[in-house]
Nucleic acid binder design. Sequence first.
DNA 1: ATCAAAAAGGCATTATATTGCACATTCAAA
DNA 2: TTTGAATGTGCAATATAATGCCTTTTTGAT
Lengths: 67, 67
Amino acid sequence: MNLVQVGETIKQRRQRLDIRQNDLADLAEVGLRTLIAIENGTGNPSFETLTKIVDVLGLELNLTVKS
Amino acid sequence: MNLVQVGETIKQRRQRLDIRQNDLADLAEVGLRTLIAIENGTGNPSFETLTKIVDVLGLELNLTVKS
DNA sequence: ATCAAAAAGGCATTATATTGCACATTCAAA
DNA sequence: TTTGAATGTGCAATATAATGCCTTTTTGAT
């Protein structure tokens, strides 16, 4: 799971939930610029920023042993 | 999965692999201070920093739909 | 109890993530 | 094809993550 994949997952999930970037950014309490960068695989969000977005979308981050 | 849990997971994995913080920091190419903060649940690492460490430890980050 | 190595904290500096504003581009509906 | 909404960018300012040096605390072995 790299930054591009994270961005794709977030974007797809947002679209499936039919939310606009602007609203997701508000709900997650992050800047629109930040959300855009993440969805596009640009940027390098902090864990906290990522968590805020992920939480709103009903997604979760996991850390497991690579199989 | 919050920052504290991430720190615990990393620390436990590092200890299981019998690596010192100093060596893990070198292998992952992050500062020792940064690693310490992460393991202690302090700080707020960027995705990239987290990935560097996680990669060395044979762990992986996943983003999935919360069940 | 002593000692050495590992872990952790204080502080200052540097690098960079986050943000808002204004503007540009893309897209979908009328 | 126009037009408004959604998405995305350039730039500058601010917040904060990352780092190193030095010191302190903790841990584990003898």
